Simulated scan of single mutants.
Amino acid sequence: MVIIVFGLPGSGKSYFASRLADMMHAVHINSDLLRKEMFRERSYTDTEKAFVYSEMLQQAKAATGQNRNVVLDATFHRNETRELFVAGIKDETGIFFIEVVADERTIMQRLKKERPDSEANFEVYKSIRQQWEPLNAPHLILESTNKNIGAMLQKATQYLKNDDGADQ
């Protein structure tokens, strides 16, 4: 099973994705950590992003080839990128999308804090929000607050077990 956790910077997607991966004993592939490993100086250009997503896809294929579940964690803000993963991971276990959202005030507060793995600030958030392409396929949408990780994980687990193809 491959679970693509996506959302805007500061939405809480990485916090959620890491806990979901732990709970499922899945491989967690985080774009921010990968970017730091791949590039000494990060520019967030389209070319750099393409390299990061390509490496994420290769690592996901390797993990699924070993019958491991995978949680992918990135903005995935463009349909083209999402489609690349759907086409690239042709495995019988399926691909599930979980979108993490939060209100802008919460996002602004989160992005003001030092975050060890992400360099995204509110300007990056606004830029990606402007480029955002909604996913028009069945997926789970979870609203992140600062106090609901347990409920988010419970909803995700239920969705992954009982996926009926309907938007949640």
Rank of each mutant, 00 (worst) to 15 (best):
M1R: 11
V2M: 00
I3Q: 09
I4L: 11
V5M: 00
F6S: 11
P9W: 03
G10N: 08
G10A: 11
G10P: 08
G12W: 01
Y15W: 09
F16K: 01
A17W: 01
L20F: 14
D22M: 05
M23V: 00
N30F: 05
N30K: 06
D32Q: 07
K36G: 08
K36Q: 13
F39C: 01
F39H: 09
F39M: 04
R40M: 09
R40G: 06
E41H: 13
S43L: 09
Y44V: 02
Y44A: 06
D46N: 12
D46H: 13
E48V: 08
A50H: 15
A50Y: 15
M56S: 04
K61C: 14
A62R: 08
A62W: 10
A63W: 06
T64N: 11
Q66V: 11
Q66Y: 15
N69F: 03
N69D: 13
N69Q: 07
N69T: 06
V71P: 00
V71M: 01
D73C: 10
T75A: 13
T75W: 02
H77Y: 14
R78S: 13
F85T: 05
V86Q: 11
V86H: 06
A87V: 03
E92R: 02
F97Q: 06
I98Q: 01
A102Y: 02
D103F: 08
R105H: 12
T106F: 01
T106E: 07
I107Y: 02
L111T: 02
K112T: 08
P116H: 08
S118C: 06
S118N: 10
S118K: 10
E119M: 05
E123S: 10
E123N: 06
Y125K: 00
R129N: 10
Q130H: 14
Q130I: 04
Q131F: 03
Q131L: 13
W132T: 04
W132G: 04
P134S: 09
P134G: 06
A137D: 06
A137S: 09
A137K: 12
H139D: 09
E143Y: 12
S144H: 03
S144M: 08
S144R: 01
T145Q: 07
N146S: 11
I149G: 03
M152Y: 00
L153S: 09
A156H: 12
T157Y: 12
Y159K: 00
K161G: 10
K161P: 03
D163T: 02
D163L: 03
G165H: 08
D167F: 15
Q168K: 05
